Amino acid sequence: MAELEVAKSTKKIIETAKDKEKSLWHKIKEMALEIGIIIFAVSLSIAFHSWSEARHEQHQVHVFLKGVRIDLMKDMGEMNEDIKAYKNQKKAFHYLGNIPKGQTANSDSLKLFAPYFYNFTGYGGNTGRYEGFKSSGKIGFIENDDLQNSILDLYEEKIPRLTISTDFYKTQKLKFADYITDNTLDYPSGNITKVMASDPVKNRSQIYLSSVNQIISNYESCTEQMKEIVKVIDAEFPPKK
């Protein structure tokens, strides 16, 4: 529509300029009117285009945030289970680290804690939606600056910090497993209770305790921020009942 108005007004300006029957002052008034129409039509077209583009951007933001909410709810469930697992690992290594000097490990206690000595727990990460939105340059479309910053902080700071801590823990736990394997004879009836009470195992266990505390803290920091993000998303886009 704007293009049509511009074309019509442009044609009229040309015709007016060529009209020899009209006075100069009359031509100027008519041409000024047509120029005004052109300016208005172009401005209206730009405004409509900007509005349409902004509306499309916010639709994309809405879809993204609804999807992120789903991801975060799933992540919080998984993270809470991970926290439970790490708390059990904390108990297991606390037991090893506090075996009295000169005593061997208790066989029943080793059986009880065995699942936590060698298994690995880490954040799998539902980050694909966020990474895709970020790589397309659309994070800036989120108009709520606090929400945008909170999402960036979660995915760019807190989750990477959690991943680093769990990766380090996994590396150290592999070394722990290697030591047990290299020094155990005639398993399970051999010297396993003595090896598990040895100074190297006790020392490593004390180190694991501090690492586990840090990991649990990183998990809790992530889940708290996830709750806040979900709360803000629900306030801006209330879930349909």
Results as ranks from 00 to 15, higher is better:
G190F: 05
K158Q: 11
N203V: 09
Q214V: 12
A197N: 06
Q172H: 10
T163G: 02
F176Y: 10
I180V: 13
L154A: 09
L174E: 11
D167L: 06
L162F: 10
P160N: 12
L209P: 00
L154Y: 01
I164W: 00
T184V: 09
S205C: 11
N218P: 03
I151C: 04
N213H: 14
S221E: 14
K158G: 00
I207H: 06
I180T: 01
Y208E: 06
L174V: 08
D167I: 05
K173N: 10
Y208N: 10
I192W: 05
L154F: 07
A177M: 08
V212H: 07
V212A: 14
T163C: 02
L152F: 04
S205W: 01
L154V: 08
P188L: 03
K194C: 04
D178T: 08
V195W: 05
T223K: 10
T184F: 01
D186V: 13
T163P: 02
I159W: 09
Y187H: 05
S217K: 12
P188R: 09
I216F: 09
S210L: 15
Q172T: 02
Y208T: 02
D182A: 09
A197Y: 03
L152G: 01
I159V: 10
D153E: 14
L154N: 08
Y169V: 00
S211N: 15
Y208D: 05
N203T: 07
V212M: 14
V195E: 04
Y155E: 12
N213K: 13
R204A: 13
V201T: 02
L174F: 03
Q206S: 07
N191D: 05
T223P: 03
I159F: 04
I207D: 04
D186L: 15
S211E: 15
S217E: 13
K173E: 02
L154W: 02
I151S: 04
L152N: 12
T193G: 06
Y208M: 15
T184E: 04
N213T: 10
N191K: 06
R161D: 15
E220G: 00
S198T: 08
N191P: 00
I192V: 14
I192L: 13
T166R: 06
V195R: 06
V212S: 10
I215V: 14
P160S: 11
V195S: 04
L162C: 04
D167N: 11
I164C: 01
T223L: 07
T223D: 11
I159G: 07
